[in-house]
Write a protein that binds this DNA or RNA. Structure first.
Lengths: 217, 217
DNA sequence: CGCACCTTTGACTCACTTCAATGAGGGTGG
DNA sequence: CCACCCTCATTGAAGTGAGTCAAAGGTGCG
């Protein structure tokens, strides 16, 4: 369900790439307003993207992990409309977009794949809109944790043990809530036996009940 | 800035289309779960899309007008993940997607165009996420009205006079607010001399001040 | 004309925010 | 190795913006 690529597909795109870069925690992959030339494929590590408001408010728009493609928003305007920051040391391949377009004209399956990636991004954003527009705090957090759990499973890790790369402040910004609200929701979930919370280590104790919460509180 | 196509570009896509359909108010262009075969180009009228929640809650995800392409979310899964409903009588062209892909392999400018349309959709959704995640009620409504105003301008209509096609309930669903909150915000804007509100006819009296509100309350 | 739906408005409630204080790691330098 | 500092996290108490419930007024369609 997430925008992961199969190993072979990634390898194929990689041939395209003339450069694999590494980033340290806090480094920018790109900033708002930067000229758009390449998409970025995350090989390892994780990245967050955010939109900045004139008055300093910010909204995190995605947390991305290995296997995901980032920077699709920039295609429409030829410059980046948000910024991407490494949340831990990362390896990232640059995929020159002009070449990708050229190649995808020759290889229908690549074309199709590119379209699916972009479409999946739209679907994902719609999901977040639903979350932000009509869910209450605990439903939002439950949904968020379930998504992380699924991502873990997709990467072959234990789906009930989460090591968060982001702070409560960042989770709050992503979910449209304040950090205190996130903290309180974690505490409540722990009280109710849904989770074991130890700072950024989260263990899901009652997955079925968490699912019920995420669908409807 | 909106996903409008130029007349010539639309005409070009239209050649692709084997059917132009008309819809009456309330008709579905497609429903959640429908098999995906075509994108839809709105020639006249307006359409809303919505995502349904298991428990009956719904979230409107877009209001679309003439010149816009709809259904991009379905590419990733080959079935529709939301539903689209005509808000007034509409003319809509169906664009078989397989043929579009084929054609865009031959015509680089069409390929580019398709990518830009999809990317613009992502940018737009990010904007809504920012709105839903970090703006208060009056800021959201001000932003919404400014968008409509710009759309009007883009279609060559008077940008300060709006004829809303949607109810307060629908605006609320789109902006993540209740209909009463929308109604109160309209009343407040009128009291403050920003708007003249007469049911669904809105006249913007103080555009600069509305802009300030939209950026930061 | 009358019915159905939409809109406005008021009073009250509540979920989340705000403000504030305390506590718990985690890295650095003495 | 401990003391210090900085950032992040937790928790409480009070405030508030938006939601809820309810009633009345408009609007437009058949």
């Amino acid at each position: 369900m997430p925008t992961n690529l199969s190993a072979s597909e990634l390898a194929r795109l990689e041939d395209l790439s003339n450069s694999k870069r590494t980033y340290s925690t806090g480094d920018y992959l790109y900033r708002t307003g930067d000229c758009f030339l390449s998409l970025h494929a995350i090989r390892s590590g994780s990245v967050k993207t955010r939109v900045l408001h004139e008055d300093g408010r910010e909204q995190l728009t995605s947390f991305l992990m290995a296997g995901e493609i980032i920077g699709l928003d920039a295609i429409s305007t030829d410059f980046h409309t948000c910024e991407a920051v490494a949340m831990e040391p990362c390896e990232v391949c640059e995929l020159p977009f002009a070449q990708m377009e050229e190649l995808s004209r020759e290889i229908p399956s690549l074309q199709r794949h590119l379209h699916k990636i972009m479409s999946r991004e739209i679907v994902r954003d719609r999901g977040i809109m639903l979350l932000l527009g009509s869910m209450r705090a605990e439903e939002r957090l439950a949904t968020f944790l379930l998504n992380l759990s699924q991502q873990n499973a997709a990467l072959g890790m234990i789906s009930t043990q989460l090591r968060l790369k982001m702070s409560r402040l960042e989770i709050g910004s992503y979910l449209g809530l304040k950090l205190e609200t996130i903290s309180r929701a974690f505490s409540r979930f722990q009280e109710e036996g849904l989770l074991q919370v130890k700072a950024r280590y989260i263990e899901i104790l009652d997955l079925p009940r968490l699912r019920i919460l995420a669908v409807k509180s």
